[in-house]
């Protein structure tokens, strides 16, 4: 039975009702692979990961990314990367970096000399 809609566009489609028992309309892969999108707001700023688009190719992924992540606000540049090409660290390895923030020998704040200098100066003046 054709559907009578309030939307003239839907009526032009001449849509039939969905039968009760639907075979799957889509098979895996129909909606293409995914791409990771990186967005730069202004020149000079860094590109940041903003999300994902599905596309058949890098070029189409870029077109999708412009539409999805550039339609509002400022955009200066975009990168797209095929998700399958990204190597992600295992979150279980997070532990390896746990002590990094406390490695003061790698940090400018880990080197305080003013006390030494003051003490030296105090000793020099009779």
């Amino acid at each position: 039975m054709p559907i009578l809609s309030l939307d003239p566009r839907v009526n032009r489609l001449q849509v039939e009702q969905v039968p009760e028992h639907q075979p799957p309309v889509l098979v895996p892969g129909d909606h293409w692979p995914s791409y990771q999108v990186f967005h730069q707001r202004r020149r000079g700023e860094k590109h940041s990961s903003v999300g994902i688009v599905h596309a058949p190719s890098l070029e189409m992924a870029m077109a999708m990314a412009k539409e999805q992540f550039g339609r509002r606000g400022e955009t200066s540049n975009l990168w797209v990367v095929c998700t399958a090409d990204v190597l992600e660290m295992d979150y279980a390895d997070e532990e390896v970096f746990r002590t990094t923030p406390s490695k003061s020998y790698r940090d400018p704040a880990g080197y305080k000399v003013n006390e030494k200098i003051d003490a030296y100066k105090a000793k020099q003046t009779p």
Partner: peptide
Amino acid sequence: AVRKVAEERGAWVRAALRRADARYATP
């Protein structure tokens, strides 16, 4: 029904653009 029609009638476009060497990875 509208959703189904969109998927069905758009299938040939998606298939035409699809590449044989497409590799799926979880986003």
